[in-house]
């Protein structure tokens, strides 16, 4: 977990170049790791063991949190780690352990299916990159108007977006009910 340190109050302007370099380095570091781990989730080296995928996914999420920090979304980085990596993925791990499914016999993947999948995924990426390519060439980030800290985000969340926020609360209630209904051994 790399936390981007807020520039100290007494930091002179000469330092900004260094900071930029640092950011560049961190970006590539996290970006490459994100993608590598992401690939490993999909094409896990131990194919028969989904637990490995979970761990790689956790690592992907952590690296993404790093990218979030680089983008000044501090609160989200924390949430990403706490909720996503820390809770959601643990659920995955639990289920994998519960079901003990690693002995699952896998039919061999057919070459056509493989090729087709790669083709479709490639097509989607190509489509995305075409849109990106057509967009203006790498616009630099402007100075952030507001930092994505807890306070500002909370303010927006509870004023402008309070309705979706409340809808989400209903959604979570639904999820709770649903999990209880589906998960309980025998309801009476």
């Amino acid at each position: 977990m790399a936390a981007r340190r807020a520039p100290p109050a007494n930091c002179p302007a000469a330092q900004s170049l260094n900071l930029e370099l640092m950011q560049e380095f961190l970006f590539y570091f996290f970006a490459i790791l994100t993608l590598v781990f992401g690939l490993l989730v999909v094409a896990s080296p131990s194919r028969r063991n989904p637990a490995a995928s979970v761990f790689f996914l956790v690592l992907t999420l952590v690296c993404l949190a790093g990218l979030f920090v680089l983008l000044h979304a501090f609160f989200l980085a924390a949430v990403q780690i706490i909720v996503y990596a820390g809770a959601v993925m643990v659920l995955f791990l639990f289920v994998i352990m519960f079901l003990n499914v690693q002995q699952e016999s896998h039919r061999p993947r057919t070459g056509t299916r493989m090729a087709l999948s790669v083709l479709i995924a490639g097509a989607i990426v190509a489509l995305l990159s075409r849109a990106l390519g057509a967009a203006s060439a790498s616009p630099a980030f402007p100075q952030p108007a507001v930092e994505g800290g807890t306070g500002p985000l909370g303010t927006v969340l509870f004023t402008e977006y309070v309705l979706p926020f409340e809808v989400i609360s209903v959604l979570i209630l639904v999820a709770i009910i649903g999990v209880v209904c589906l998960g309980k051994k025998e309801l009476k």
């Binding site: 780690i81 990596a85 820390g86």
Partner: peptide, 8 residues
């Protein structure tokens, strides 16, 4: 928040 993230 960092603490909780790490604790998680």
């Amino acid at each position: 928040l960092f603490t909780f993230g790490v604790a998680a």
